[in-house]
Amino acid sequence: MLSEKSRPVIEATLPVIAERINDITPDFYQRMFTARPDLMDGMFSRSSQLEGTQPKALAGSIAVFASYILAHPGRYPDEVLSRVAHKHAALGLREEEYPTVYKYLFEAIAANLGDILTPEIAEAWTEVYWLMADALIKLEKGLYAVQANNAMFAPFAIVRREETGENVVVLTLEPANAIAMTDAVAGQYVSIITKAKDGLRQPRQFTLLPSEKNQRRVAIKLDIKGEMTQILHEKKVGDLLELSNPYGDVTLGAFGDSEDQPLYLFSAGIGVTPMIAFLSELAATGSKREVIVVHADRSLTTWPLRDEMTEYVNLIENAQLVSFVEADGEGNFEGRVDISKLGVPAHASAYLCGPLPFMQGVRSQLIEAGVPGTNIQYEIFGPDQWMLHDQARG
């Protein structure tokens, strides 16, 4: 809980910090990576730094946290903290690095604010930082504690390589040593680390697809502008990759939805992956729930894992598959997803995965159809800036 001493200081300075934080965080990262270049090796994504998505995500999370604890004394923004904690755990962030972040972040704040930063203001924002950091540390310790092993990353060998859709490769991996494997919950993901062309180890997150016991299976969409997906696409059977334990809080029922609610799974492109994991779980448990799977793609040939998705839908008693396809005459409907054609009831529970504009558009339509924002969940891989806005959380 924010102290009464710090509360009026944070209230007075939050507008200034919020306005300047997007300028502060790039300076913070530059300072930190200059002093600690090892943190870029295996933990931070170089492309996210270059794009600015990681700095903006950090900046936004601090501002959102401060704003939330001002408006809700005695409470924390649990959904935001959970999302951040799972991302941190998947990257192997350790408690001892929080003082590192504090040191270089507050150096950047001091440099930006100059004489504005009085000792009183510095003390108040230090309190905010450590309230947020301590909450994340506690969550991350809990996430690490339930794993079947204490390794942040372990070597896995590729045992199968398949292609599906357009520029999507499916890799099946098995542990290269005797490490105990944590059972993944449908919808969770792993970080995969491999070396960039200059030798720097770089992490990326991928949803876990249904697989056999003691296997991990992921689908990787080629990003022609990206740094790492091309390298991963070139991997062959027998090659080794470093995998984290499974993390992620976007799982069925995690947000209070129940079997009594119709379940709508909206995906576009490679966003099929968590939906296939959900469908596998529903099929395995013999669910009687009403499930409407809605997928959008350019054509049937570009639709990744279409046959697998269809097979799982057919295994669920009350499930149906609806497609919106841009190519003429190939799907149930032509063009983009149109919620008005689906008759979505207001008490429905919805999960979204796909490009951000797709998820924003579908979510807006669902809200207009009367579905509460709290009934709509989504997954983004990489730094999640959308979570920091009210339209993604409320």
Rank of each mutant, 00 (worst) to 15 (best):
V322C: 12
G329Y: 10
V294D: 02
E290A: 03
I316E: 10
S323D: 08
G354Q: 05
V293E: 01
P345A: 10
E308R: 10
R289P: 00
G331W: 15
Q320M: 11
L315V: 00
N314V: 01
L305E: 04
L300T: 10
I292F: 00
E311P: 01
R306E: 04
S299Y: 08
Q360W: 01
V294K: 08
E290V: 07
T301N: 07
G343F: 12
A327F: 11
R298D: 03
D328H: 06
G335P: 09
Y312M: 07
I316Q: 12
A327Q: 15
F333K: 12
H347M: 07
S299K: 04
E317L: 10
Y351S: 05
V313D: 08
W303F: 15
A319N: 08
F333E: 13
W303Y: 14
Y351L: 02
W303P: 00
F358R: 04
V294N: 02
M359G: 09
R336I: 06
D338Q: 12
A346L: 04
E317C: 02
V325M: 09
E290G: 00
A346T: 15
A348H: 06
E308V: 11
V291N: 04
R298C: 01
E311C: 05
R298S: 06
E311V: 06
L300S: 06
R298W: 02
I316F: 09
T302L: 05
H295R: 09
V313G: 13
F324Y: 15
E330F: 10
D328N: 06
K341L: 14
R289V: 00
N332Y: 04
V313E: 05
